[in-house]
Design a protein around this nucleic acid. Structure first.
Lengths: 190, 190
DNA sequence: AAAATGACTAAAAAACTAAAACGGTCAATT
DNA sequence: AATTGACCGTTTTAGTTTTTTAGTCATTTT
């Protein structure tokens, strides 16, 4: 009971959004799940969308942490880029909330969800851009167009991790690393 | 009046599908547009879907012709791959019927339309695969996984031609050729 | 006789409506 | 000062009726 009510609400909302998506989650339900009066939610969050934004923000942080955790300073830059990107896309296709949101966008076209997915994509792109920029300034890769490079890398990974398996056997992390090495990084490196 | 009724029907259907999409096109409307009794349509086509399939089949042929027309035997293989792919994707984002079908899939999720778009994508992929296979057997590029190579090339072009311009200035054919040369073809060639 | 037709039908979609559920508020309660 | 849930205007849903549609086929036209 002494637990922070804000935390309770966030946990309840995260669970509900993951289970039922944005539209099918009601504020009454979140209140009941959090053992909190509905009005209390509105002392912490302006409205449903802002509560949703909070949950998605945590999700993005979680993704960034996962990506950071997999980077090892000793390894070559290209290997680390692969590890981080693969982890991000793996997260994207395994995490409950992500799966639900992607499904909700496809099946119901909920606008708030589309916007959030777009936001998440932008966050990932910015993250990649930063990583590449860091290496770029150390002279490891040439200053090609950063925006374009990260965009292409991201699209490539989406294609290899998510799109490919819609009509073929999934590719392992090692296979994808090899493919990227053969196709893409030859172009970036030196 | 002496004109072939089958041709009249196809022209009317093509116009109507392009203007209103699959669902919003009615057989009565096609009949009226073709100056033909509705029953006559059914002497040439089993049902609405088969009429749709006929129109899409023409579209695919048209696309292949456009791609072929742009290939010049004297040019290097990679240049021709670029010309063909760019033309195909350009067609995809400028042709009336294509635009309408992509819109209808996104906004209404019409199943018949999704299936047709998938079919068109497969046709393009097969076309690319054939082109690359031809060059591959002549020893110009190594026998990497054909399926994967054509898949990646296609995804790359979709990303550069269609996705990029959703949040940036569109890229010209020359820019895309340069990007593909720098990033991808260094990996394929030799 | 063969080809073309449009009135017809069963099935699907759209329009309508009443009832339920929803997000958000705020006077009452703790 | 913090929390609450009954309450309100609006939106969604579920159930029903009406309209539209794909496809057929007896009749008409060539």
């Amino acid at each position: 009971m002494a637990t922070d009510r804000r935390k309770l609400i966030i946990e309840a909302a995260a669970k509900s959004f993951s289970l039922f998506g944005f539209k099918a989650t009601t504020m009454d339900q979140v209140a009941k799940l959090a053992n909190v009066g509905k009005g209390t939610i509105y002392t912490f969050f302006k409205n449903k969308e802002e509560l949703f934004a909070e949950i998605v923000s945590s999700l993005v942080n979680e993704m960034k942490n996962e990506a950071e955790a997999v980077i090892q300073p000793g390894l070559p830059f290209t290997e680390n880029v692969h590890r981080a990107l693969f982890r991000l896309l793996e997260f994207r296709s395994h995490h409950q909330l992500m799966i639900k949101l992607i499904q909700e966008e496809k099946e119901m076209g909920t606008i708030a969800v589309s916007e959030m997915l777009q936001h998440i994509e932008n966050e990932i792109l910015t993250y990649i851009k930063q990583k590449i920029e860091g290496a770029s300034s150390k002279g490891i890769i040439p200053k090609t167009d950063l925006e374009l490079t990260s965009f292409l890398l991201f699209k490539m990974y989406i294609a290899l991790v998510s799109d490919w398996e819609k009509s073929h056997e999934p590719l392992s992390s090692e296979q994808i690393a090899e493919i990227i090495k053969v196709f893409l990084l030859k172009g970036i490196k030196n």
